[in-house]
């Protein structure tokens, strides 16, 4: 452990150098032998257990109602809400779609969804950087989900924290837009590892960009060999049929 500021041997690197090494690492000395042992109290509790318990309840409730729930995760600005609006416009007549929107502030996204006629609830996380299973449980209770419907949970735009929080969904779907870097999957591997599907969005812009689609997919498969990939464009409609087929397969499995 770093004796200058107490930082440990984690994965933080500054210019590729571990922070404790940057200070000149001094190994901590072990306690002198023969000292009396302080009293120990056993705890044995998983800290994420509270969230996981709520997520379990959500999953049970959604499964019982045969609702196919997806947790949509991405960086801010990847086009999640536009993709949802397009998805509801194209497939809303095939099966009921309800949406839970997560943002730090404003209910603008929920209003955009409601304008399509679909049910939507906005969760504002305030200072929070992710949705948790407890918040989502309350939103699910308010939504009155139809049997055999699809629930889209649009998480807070953040490629880091939402990866760690199970909400009770069937799958995490990560959206990566082609205006972001191809190497996002290896820069934020936890998120791409947690996702079952990657939607490569804004593909209508590809002719105007130097984006290397194959490299982006290779990076995603480097951290998660099993990840499925669909190229889509909420604007042109490219890939929407494939996205629909993926949802339908998931719905069939859930019902």
């Amino acid at each position: 452990m770093c004796t200058t500021c107490g930082c440990g041997s984690g994965e933080t690197r500054i210019d590729g150098v571990a922070h404790d090494q940057a200070h000149g690492y001094t190994p901590a000395r072990s306690l002198a032998p023969g000292l009396p042992r302080a009293r120990r109290v056993s705890i044995e509790q998983n800290l994420l257990a509270k969230n996981d318990a709520y997520a379990g309840e959500n999953r049970q409730r959604l499964t019982a109602a045969r609702v196919f729930a997806l947790n949509l995760v991405s960086s801010p600005g990847s086009g999640k809400t536009s993709l949802l609006v397009k998805t509801i416009a194209q497939f809303g007549h095939r099966f009921p779609i309800a949406v839970i929107e997560g943002d730090q502030q404003t209910s603008q996204d929920a209003e955009r969804i409601r304008a399509t006629g679909a049910a939507a609830i906005q969760i504002n996380t305030g200072k929070g950087c992710h949705l948790d299973a407890h918040m989502v449980g309350h939103a699910v209770a308010q939504l009155e989900l139809a049997d055999h419907s699809v629930l889209m949970i649009e998480n807070v735009g953040n490629l880091v924290c939402p990866a760690a929080f199970d909400l009770g969904e069937a799958h995490k779907v990560v959206i990566l837009s082609v205006t972001e870097g191809e190497d996002k999957p290896i820069k934020y591997p936890d998120m791409f590892r947690a996702a079952s599907l990657m939607l490569l969005n804004k593909c209508d812009l590809l002719p105007h960009l130097d984006y290397d689609v194959d490299a982006a997919i290779a990076y995603a498969r480097q951290v998660n060999p099993g990840i499925e990939v669909i190229r889509v464009s909420a604007k042109s409609g490219e890939g929407m049929a494939e996205w629909l087929a993926w949802i339908e397969a998931g719905r069939a499995a859930a019902t």
């Binding site: 009293r39 109290v41 705890i43 044995e44 509790q45 998983n46 994420l48």
Partner: peptide, 11 residues
Amino acid sequence: SEMRVKELEVD
């Protein structure tokens, strides 16, 4: 992927 509080040393 767990994060578990095992024990405490207390006074």
